[in-house]
Amino acid sequence: MSESTTQTGPQVLTLTRGAHRLDLLPTLGGAIAGWTSGDRALLQPVADPNLIAQEHHPVAAYPLVPYSNRIADAHFTFEGETFALSPNILGESNSIHGNAWEREWTVAHQSEDRAVLILDHRPENTLDGTDPAMQWPFTYRAALSYALVENGLDVELVVENRDTRPQPVGFGFHPFFPRSEDMRVSFDARGVWLSDASNLPQKHATAAGEWGFSGPTDVSARAIDNCFSGWSGHARVDWNDSGLSMTIEADPVFHHLVVFTAPGKPFVAMEPVSNMNDAIHHPEIPDRGLHVLKPAGLLQGKIRFRLVDADG
């Protein structure tokens, strides 16, 4: 384990185990800067200028707290009160991916191969002078654990409601996988949300035909930005030419999977998440994945990324 700070970027916390190296960015949203095994990149760092708080720094994965994906028009009503949020993605009126990725996390524990990061969000106080109530109007604590294991990486998220009132909570994790022509992805889901022009859910369809990914599927020519419902909690990425494969195993709380890819981009994002996109505006959907936490209530789950033999 080591820490470093460059003149052109944020603090980097490095974990190692065997051939694995994991570079973390605690002060930049608790993100992963990169994950490698030897000279092989297992995640793809991506600089997205539309995500304002990432300040053009490349990140390979980051937490989604206290909700995944978009809240339409950056406002919502909960228990009779309406709240306005700050749009945090350029070119959209929506807010996206919560606010944890916009904040500095504190390193609570660190060892050679494991780190635990903590974020305390309070609507009345932030370090950067922005209005925290416009990021999220409720108090919460989030804990994020990264642990390198012999053949992969464990990521665990815990969110605690530290407010005096109930609050709506969802969460997830947003990894980018290196894209190549030989890459194939596979997973099982019951349905898929088809999106409108604002990338908000418009229609629910069966995850079959062009939306079926049960077998290894080439997504290199497709533009996908959709949330899959009834996800089995298992997904796989195969890079056939190199014989490298990775499985994604997530706890049942992550029963949605967001897939994001675009032709010409160097990544495929496969995001285990608890809630459907814009869940807060869809109380009519029984399995929307939004959790109402009472004070001191917890939401937690673990995601396991494992390297496997090509025939495994």
Results as ranks from 00 to 15, higher is better:
Ile280Gly: 13
Ile32Asp: 08
Lys302Asp: 01
Leu127Lys: 02
Val258Asn: 11
Leu15Glu: 02
Ile89Asn: 04
His75Ser: 15
Glu3Val: 08
Val258Gly: 04
Ala33Lys: 13
Phe260Glu: 04
Asp120Val: 14
Gly34Leu: 07
Gly34Ile: 01
Asn199Met: 08
Val259Arg: 03
Glu79Ile: 10
Asn69Ala: 12
Glu156Pro: 01
Gly212Asp: 07
Val237Ser: 05
Pro263Val: 04
Pro26Lys: 09
Arg40Thr: 15
Val149Lys: 14
Pro283Leu: 14
His282Lys: 13
Ala189Trp: 00
Glu284Met: 07
Glu102Cys: 12
Asn94Ile: 08
Ala74Trp: 03
Gly233Cys: 14
Asn161Cys: 05
Gly170Ser: 06
Ile248Arg: 06
Asn125Pro: 00
Gln110Ile: 12
Lys302Thr: 14
His109Tyr: 13
Leu200Gln: 13
Arg162Thr: 13
Val159Met: 03
Gly191Thr: 13
Thr106Val: 10
Ala100Met: 08
Ala223Trp: 00
His281Phe: 09
Ala19Asp: 13
Gly34Phe: 01
Gly301Leu: 05
Thr217Pro: 11
Asp278Met: 12
His121Leu: 08
Gln167Glu: 11
Tyr146Arg: 03
Leu244Arg: 14
Arg184Gly: 10
Ser95Ile: 02
Ser229Val: 00
Ala279Cys: 11
Gly152Ala: 11
Ala115Cys: 14
Trp101Asn: 08
His255Glu: 09
Ser186Glu: 15
Glu150Cys: 05
His291Asp: 07
Leu51Gln: 14
Tyr62Cys: 05
His281Arg: 15
Ser214Pro: 00
Gly29Ser: 10
Gln54Phe: 15
Gly312Pro: 00
Val159Arg: 01
Leu144His: 12
Asn88Ala: 04
Ala221Glu: 11
Ala61Cys: 09
Leu13Ala: 10
Ile248Cys: 15
Ala143Ser: 09
Gly297Arg: 02
Phe228Pro: 02
Ala208Gln: 10
Ala142Ile: 04
Glu92Ala: 15
Trp35Asp: 07
Trp101Tyr: 14
Phe267Ala: 06
Gly289Tyr: 04
Gly209Val: 06
Ala72Val: 10
Thr206Asp: 12
Gly80Ser: 13
Leu307Phe: 02
Gly152Ile: 06
Ser195Lys: 12
Val258Gln: 12
Glu156Cys: 10
Leu127Gln: 00
Thr261His: 01
Asn69Gln: 14
Ser198Ala: 15
Tyr146His: 12
Asn226Ile: 08
Ala133Val: 05
Leu299Ser: 06
His57Trp: 10
Pro87Arg: 06
Trp35Met: 09
Leu257Ala: 11
Asp188Asn: 10
Ala41Ser: 13
Gly209Ile: 03
Leu127Ser: 08
Pro132Met: 05
Ala108Pro: 02
Gly212Arg: 04
Phe187Asp: 01
Thr247His: 10
Phe228Ala: 11
Glu92Asp: 09
Gly152His: 03
Ala143Trp: 03
Ser186Gln: 13
Pro178Phe: 09
Glu112Tyr: 01
Ala143Gly: 01
Ala133Ser: 11
Ile248Phe: 13
Ile96Cys: 11
Phe213His: 08
Ser37Pro: 00
Tyr62Phe: 15
Asn199Gly: 04
Ala310Val: 08
Leu43Asn: 03
Leu119Pro: 06
Thr106Pro: 00
Ser214Ala: 15
Gly80His: 11
Pro58Arg: 11
Phe260His: 15
Ala235Leu: 07
His282Phe: 13
His121Asp: 05
